[in-house]
Amino acid sequence: MKERITGQRFLAVTLLNVLITVVEIIGGLISGSLALLSDAFHNMGDSFSIILGYFAQQIGGRPETRKSTYGYRRSEILSALTNSLLLVIIAIFLIGKAIQRLSHPQHINGTIMMVVAIVGLVANFLSAALLHSGSHDNLNVKATYLHVLSDALSSVAVIIGGIILIFVNVPWLDPLLTIAVAIYIAYESLPIINQTIRILMQSSPDLDYEAIAKDLTSIDGVDAVHHVHAWMIDEHHIIFSAHLNCEDKPLSQIEQIYSQVEKLLREKYGICHITLQAECSRGKGEELFNTVADEREMINDHHINK
């Protein structure tokens, strides 16, 4: 079952990120470290993302209504997409600034850079611990959790850079660390962007449709399956509809077949919402998926025959 993160946890993580942002801005200005300043802006974006994630979770938990019969779960998918896109935008911005800094390197105070980064690392680990439990099965929380983890990683990189700069004057190291962290942030964000877009575009979930058809036709009274549609409301709720060719039976017996089909789809394939249409011979022999092109061809054939 999907665990929901409480408002107190979201508030705690937000306050920690605001604290990190203030400390890193001050530390970055004093030390001259672009890596610290970029991490500060990253944390500022995190604060926005955490707030957005919290409100999306609250909206997503609302029940279905007459105006929204599938509920509001897509709000969390939109939040996850927004947060992940924000991470990519931040990463591109940081890479641009780092390239500029490589052209005009400047002296960095490694000690201040290291101490401030340690404070940021501790705060980010606390935030990650607060969000960890809900990050496994919720794209919205996972995107927020990824924000925090990427900050922790960048803090580790800044700490290592600070230690090196204490002993060796390597002006190009600070922007190089910034570029490396930015690339990692973008790389980790792309899978979430891909998954959220697939859900919003109502792409088919990863199901074995041939196995489903085989299982359904093994039920007594079901001769064939066609006109299958499947999509997802969020990463956990699959919607499924299909036409079943059944023997010519009373409706009371067809309902018994429906019950068997629904039980199979729920228990074996994890489908939560199922719509079925029983037919005798209509559509029999059609493909499992009746695409728009197939439908247009059927309509044209019908007009020609007429």
Rank of each mutant, 00 (worst) to 15 (best):
S79K: 00
K268L: 09
R74P: 14
L265T: 00
A224W: 05
L190Y: 11
G120W: 02
A182W: 04
V158A: 05
A293D: 11
N138G: 02
D220E: 06
I59G: 03
L207C: 05
I20N: 01
N245A: 15
Q57F: 02
H302A: 09
R198D: 06
E76H: 08
R296W: 13
R282E: 07
H104W: 05
P171I: 06
G45C: 14
L176Y: 02
N138R: 02
I164P: 12
Y269S: 15
V222W: 00
I25D: 10
P250D: 07
I30S: 06
A224K: 03
T144E: 07
V13D: 01
L37C: 03
R9N: 14
M1A: 15
F125L: 04
A211E: 12
T178P: 03
I163A: 15
D46Q: 06
G285N: 11
Y258C: 04
R73W: 05
Y258S: 10
T14Q: 08
H236R: 12
K263D: 13
N245P: 10
I219Q: 00
A35I: 14
R73F: 07
F93A: 06
S203P: 14
E286I: 02
I25T: 12
W172D: 07
A186M: 05
A129G: 03
M114S: 03
A157I: 00
I271G: 11
I271R: 03
I108Q: 00
A91Q: 09
A180R: 00
L200F: 11
T275E: 06
L176Q: 01
H42Y: 13
I50G: 05
A230N: 06
E267S: 03
D46E: 08
P175C: 08
K249N: 07
D206Y: 11
V292C: 07
I30E: 04
K97R: 14
L81T: 01
I92V: 13
E287G: 08
L146A: 02
D215R: 03
I51V: 09
G27F: 04
Y145P: 04
V23Y: 04
I20G: 00
H42A: 01
I95N: 05
K67N: 12
N109T: 15
D294F: 02
K263T: 14
L81A: 01
H136I: 11
A278I: 04
G162I: 03
V119H: 00
N305D: 11
S68M: 14
Q260M: 07
K263V: 12
G134I: 13
S252N: 11
V122F: 10
L34S: 12
G96N: 15
P191E: 07
G7F: 10
T21C: 10
I199H: 04
P191S: 09
V261C: 13
L173F: 13
Q202R: 12
N124T: 13
R9L: 15
I238M: 03
V22S: 13
T144N: 14
I238Q: 01
D39H: 02
L52K: 00
G60P: 00
H243S: 12
L177C: 14
T144L: 10
Q277G: 07
W231H: 10
S68C: 15
L85N: 04
I30N: 04
I299Q: 10
C280K: 04
I89M: 09
A123C: 08
I95S: 10
K67H: 10
A143M: 05
Q256M: 14
A40L: 03
L173P: 02
E64C: 08
A91M: 15
Y209P: 05
R74N: 05
D151N: 06
I89H: 15
